[in-house]
Amino acid sequence: MNSMIQGVEILLVEDNENDAELTIRALKKNNLANGLLHLSDGEKALNFIFGEGEYAGRHIEERPRVIVLDINMPRVGGIEVLERLKSDERTKLIPVIVLTSSKESPDVHRCYELGVNSYVVKPVEFEDFFKAIASLGFFWMIVNQPPA
């Protein structure tokens, strides 16, 4: 069992190690990475959130303040995770940000239908990427009032 399963504020679900590193760096630089847990696929994310599998025994009530979700992941993709989260009374209020690599994505419509809270295309240029992640972090961790 993962040692850090308590006090998770940001759950980052991202299979691409490089993107994860850059995302975490951008958050860290803005002091927004406290309580960040990075999981590398959708299956682990669902297990974590619902306290199943390797996270059996974790309380589902301990909700992260925000979930940052990559779309294209092997096995269980971001859309499937989003669908599970938004269709379960216990988790549907957790804000979910979907990050995708592509402007061409046919998924944007689907994500909004499922109730995504933000949908962001990862910029290639580092400055832009950095700014995008930082402002997401600011908004969802500081500006936004989470559901009680």
Partner: peptide, 13 residues
């Protein structure tokens, strides 16, 4: 669009 951009983002970053 998706797969070619990811490595570029890593290079740039």
């Amino acid at each position: 669009s998706h797969d070619l951009r990811a490595p570029l983002r890593a290079m740039n970053g």
